[in-house]
Nucleic acid binder design. Structure first.
Length: 434
RNA sequence: GCGGCUAUAGUUCAGGGGCAGAACGCCUGUCUGUGGCACAGGAUGUCGUGGGUUCGAUCCCCACUAGCCGCCCCA
């Protein structure tokens, strides 16, 4: 029988790496809370129609990357339902916003999420079929200020703060405006017209994109095509006055808050629901998957899935990519300190095992990280195990059990002493700072 | 979905048509209530899976699977 393995594109996260994941999530929760966001947890699967309508039928995500299945009917009378593992979380959040009538509060809904998403893509470093995203959305009725450019700038400023607090250095923020739902089709037509006479000189991919999705031509990385692309009309010139003004105000607010960014005229995003502001934080050293996070405004998404007008802006970060970036940085600097227990309790003989567990319980209840040995171990083995996992070792033999005076050896100094049980916790806690 | 590279010990990797290798790690002992350091010894394994060529395949060939890199797309 063949050995079972994690399926393609999925993987196990083990200690100590999981500590890094927890740190990232803790920083995210801390930062988002200060911007007055609350956590939302939506189901991991949804009605397939949500993603078809929300993300866009023609996007790669929906057309070929979703894990979709027909749910079983429970009764003859019940119809089967097409369900899909969520490929992203914005559509689910907006669905929940509509379902729970959050717009009726008259306030902005400011929600963040942390959780797994699923796309059936070819796995690569920093790209998995189950991957975790951290994201946030600001949604609300227009009268709550959801369309304000200040919201866009605040989200971007929050992200800059998050990356800084997490300790990621060298990130780049690129922003652009893809215009309103009216601007975008107009620009696409302008682009098609401009491409027509020159497309034959471009790479095969671009020739295909010019037909299927002209905006994608702007993403082309082939050096020979760059002069042609640079000469194409810019989307900024197709924006109506409201969109142009909106974008200018986003930029002005970013300038005032000192968040560095570049205006990238070529930044278009793949999901259909984006309008006006789009952005991307990138980082070198991630290879081809250089986007740390991306997002933008989606003023029409709620209506696209049957809800009220509820403009919003949000982003999604690839948690795997944050981990990779931090790991690369820590490799350059100093390795993260390994997890180490405060002490290792070594019962000297099986007769001391019960007392050892009781002592461990006492210390653990005082907040200490304690590893527990076994009385069948030879003392030498206990020391070897202790030295690998803990800062110190506590010997618990017959003498110690009777007297209540424990023998403690601290590995950093090699010093050994007798300590009353009542003073043990303080002594061990003190070792953390040495 | 397409193209390229890779798969050998717990880990990182070398090797090569005829007994399976190194380093680190692991285990044992020198040392029976004392770790690290040193010395001595030991175990590592279906050489990714399945087929083919061959007297003989871990090595050559094919397929599959998985990983990595790039494309597509995206976080």
């Amino acid at each position: 029988m063949s050995t079972l393995k994690a399926v393609r594109g999925t993987r196990d996260l083990l200690p100590p790496e999981t500590a890094l994941w927890n740190r990232i999530e803790a920083v995210a929760r801390s930062v988002f809370a200060r911007y007055n966001f609350g956590e939302i947890r939506t189901p991991i699967f949804e009605d397939t129609a949500l993603f078809a309508r929300g993300v866009g039928e023609e996007t790669d995500i929906v057309s070929k990357e979703m894990y979709t299945w027909e749910d079983r009917a429970r009764a003859q009378s019940e119809k089967t339902q097409s369900l899909t593992l969520r490929p992203e979380n914005t559509a689910g959040v907006v669905r929940a916003y509509i379902e729970h009538k959050l717009g009726e509060t008259g306030q902005l809904a400011k929600l963040y999420y942390i959780g797994p998403q699923f796309r059936r893509e070819r796995p690569q470093k920093g790209r998995y079929r189950q991957f975790s995203q951290i994201g946030a959305e600001v949604i609300g009725p227009t009268h709550a200020g959801s369309e304000s450019p200040l919201r866009d700038a605040e989200v971007l400023e929050m992200l800059a703060t998050f990356l800084d607090e997490l300790g990621i250095t060298g990130w780049t923020l690129k922003i652009n405006s893809v215009g309103s739902s009216a601007d975008r089709p107009r620009y696409i037509e302008t682009l098609r017209t401009a491409l027509a006479p020159v497309v034959s000189q471009m790479c095969p991919d671009c020739q295909r994109r010019a037909e299927t999705n002209p905006l994608r031509v702007l993403d082309c990385k082939i050096p020979e095509d760059q002069p042609i692309i640079d000469a194409l009309p810019r989307i900024a010139d197709s924006l109506d006055e409201a969109s142009r003004d909106h974008f200018a105000q986003v930029c002005a607010a970013l300038d005032a808050s000192g968040v560095p960014y570049t205006h990238d005229h070529r930044l278009v995003r793949g999901l259909d629901y984006y309008t006006r502001t789009t952005f991307e934080f990138t980082h070198g050293g991630l290879g081809a998957q250089n986007a740390l996070l991306g997002g933008g405004r989606y003023d029409g998404l709620s209506e696209a899935i049957g809800g009220p007008k509820a403009p919003g802006i949000g982003f999604a970060m690839g948690e795997d990519r944050l981990v990779l970036t931090l790991q690369a940085q820590e490799a350059n600097q100093k390795a993260a300190p390994p997890q180490v227990a405060d002490t290792y309790i070594a019962p000297l003989g099986p007769a001391q095992n019960p007392a050892a567990l009781a002592l461990a319980r006492t210390l653990r209840r005082q907040g200490l990280r304690v590893e527990l040995g076994d009385g069948t171990f030879r003392l030498k083995k206990s020391f070897e195990a202790a030295d690998k996992t803990a800062r110190s070792i506590v010997l618990l033999g017959e003498d110690e059990a009777q007297s209540g005076i424990l023998t403690v050896k601290v590995f950093a100094t090699g010093s050994q002493s007798k300590v009353p049980q009542t003073e043990l916790a303080d002594l061990l806690a003190g070792l953390r700072n040495t």
